[in-house]
Design a protein around this nucleic acid. Structure first.
Lengths: 116, 116
DNA sequence: CCGTATCCTGCACGATACTG
DNA sequence: CAGTATCGTGCAGGATACGG
């Protein structure tokens, strides 16, 4: 009766992690959030700040980030109109995550580099 | 001359984040690491601990995690042989990342829940 | 128990061109 | 400048079944 049977339960951790992945999954969302958070507020600036990012993909990702209330799209001025993208306060809650990722990436690159 | 031109540079952060994403990207890798780290060391236990995970996908992900030195596959015993999956020490370096993700996921679920 | 073998589907991502 | 329009591809992921 004291013997464990079946798999250990890891859902307490796995489920919230999957919730997070559902929001920030993919190659581009975090980079875009980083770029906008740092101050790039124009479509073209965001695109050019991230190598390999095409307008079609950027447009799609921005829409999804808007839906998740992470990024805000604002139209300013009359003629000509300007479109501004800014980070919502909610995006700031991702900062610990982003820095954890950055740190791990830096360390990982060092490890891979020194290993070969 | 003091006026900034072009996009602000965010590559110092974006590049390491992308390096990290290259390793842990996808729906299953982090959940699998969590499950193994918690003590699930048998193929079937890992599979059953993560709802929706099929054997084919698990086998593929385990191979990739092995290549990245995050998880170790060990054959023990003679007859019958046992296969054990264990977390490498290197997988522990992902702990801050995993907890950042877990925390954000918990908070996000609360936010979404209270919003509707 | 630990996988492999097929088969299948969608979509994430990419290249390129074009428009108000 | 801020996108949309097309077209194309690969692969992550899924369903199901089977094998040592």
């Amino acid at each position: 009766m004291a013997v464990k049977k079946g798999p250990l339960n890891c859902l307490d951790t796995v489920k919230p992690v999957r919730d997070t992945l559902d929001v920030i999954n993919g190659k581009w969302k975090l980079p875009i959030i980083i770029s906008v958070s740092i101050g790039n507020d124009r479509f073209t600036d965001i695109q050019e700040s991230i190598p390999g990012l095409t307008p079609k993909v950027l447009a799609k990702e921005l829409k999804e980030l808007e839906e998740h209330k992470l990024i805000k799209r604002t139209v300013v001025g009359d003629y000509p109109v300007k479109i501004l993208y800014t980070a919502e306060p909610y995006a700031d809650t991702l900062t610990p995550l982003i820095y954890a990722m950055k740190d791990w990436g830096v360390n990982h690159r060092n490890k891979v580099f020194s290993a070969e």
